[in-house]
C-alpha cells in the first residue's frame, strides 16, 4: 500500500525529515498490509464495539467539585504569564 507519509505526519503534527519519512514508509506499509487481513472477516451486520462491557456511561450531579489549583496545574507548563499559557503569536 502507498501511504503519503508526509501528509499523515502533517495531520499528526509531527515534523519528519525526508529521510525519516523514507524510512517510515515501508514500515507503515508493512503494518497496514498486515492489518488488511481484517478484510478476510465477514462482519456483515456486526455492531462495532463501543465499550468492552455492556454498561451505560455514568453521570454525576452537575455541580462544581474541582478546587482552584491553577498554579499547581500550570507549574509544568513551558511558559506561562499571569495565569495564562504563552504560545508564539497566532494572529498578526
Amino acid at each position: 500500500m502507498d501511504i503519503n507519509v508526509q501528509k499523515i505526519a502533517n495531520l499528526s503534527r509531527i515534523r519528519l525529515t525526508d529521510s525519516e519519512a523514507t524510512e517510515l514508509a515501508p514500515q507503515l506499509s508493512s503494518i497496514m498490509g498486515y492489518i488488511d487481513k481484517l478484510g478476510e472477516v465477514n462482519t456483515d451486520g456486526v455492531s462495532p464495539t463501543a465499550h468492552p462491557h455492556d454498561v451505560a456511561m455514568p453521570q454525576r450531579p452537575d455541580v462544581v467539585t474541582n478546587p482552584n489549583r491553577r498554579d499547581a496545574l500550570q507549574q509544568p507548563a513551558p511558559r506561562t504569564e499571569s495565569g495564562l499559557y504563552v504560545v508564539p503569536k497566532v494572529i498578526e
Binding site: G39, V41, V46
Partner: peptide
Amino acid sequence: DAYYLKAQQVRTLII
C-alpha cells in the same frame, strides 16, 4: 470505515 470501524466490528466477534 475500512480500518477503525472494521476493527471494532472484529472486536465484537472476538468478544
